[in-house]
Design a protein around this nucleic acid. Structure first.
Length: 109
DNA sequence: ATGGTGACGACGG
DNA sequence: ACCGTCGCCACCA
């Protein structure tokens, strides 16, 4: 079932604008769950319902600026890379995003 | 219950 | 910059 924590996480992710990215830890903190970055990964992994179509899960990457490796075949990683590139996010030769440039900063609440 | 796992992250070497 | 370790905690078998 969908817990309040998951809803809080999705609400934050929905605010990340096109062409910008946020880290798991950043989303966790903004969602009121400081130190629980892993839970953000779980919440995004659980995104499968139609009502979650508006959650831009691909804009969440890890603190090193990389697309986090999933278990199993990495098809989703590839999709995430493409979606981000399509919105203008650039990757260096190591597949990393320059967070100092592309990181989303929360505006005034 | 309970132990293993993992879309993470800070830290130390 | 690159590992390994440890803390974290919801999920699941």
């Amino acid at each position: 079932m969908r817990s309040p924590a998951y809803r809080a996480i999705y609400d934050i992710v929905r605010r990340i604008p096109r062409g910008r990215v946020a880290t798991y830890g950043q989303v966790a903190t903004l969602a009121g769950l400081p130190g629980r970055a892993r839970q953000v990964g779980y919440a995004l992994h659980a995104l499968r319902d139609p009502e979650d179509r508006d959650v831009p899960w691909h804009r969440v990457i890890n603190a090193r600026g990389e697309i986090s490796p999933r278990a199993g075949a990495g098809l989703e990683e590839h999709a995430q890379h493409q979606l981000l590139q399509a919105e203008g996010v650039t990757f260096d030769p190591h597949g990393r995003v320059d967070l100092t440039r592309a990181r989303w900063e929360l505006e005034a609440p």
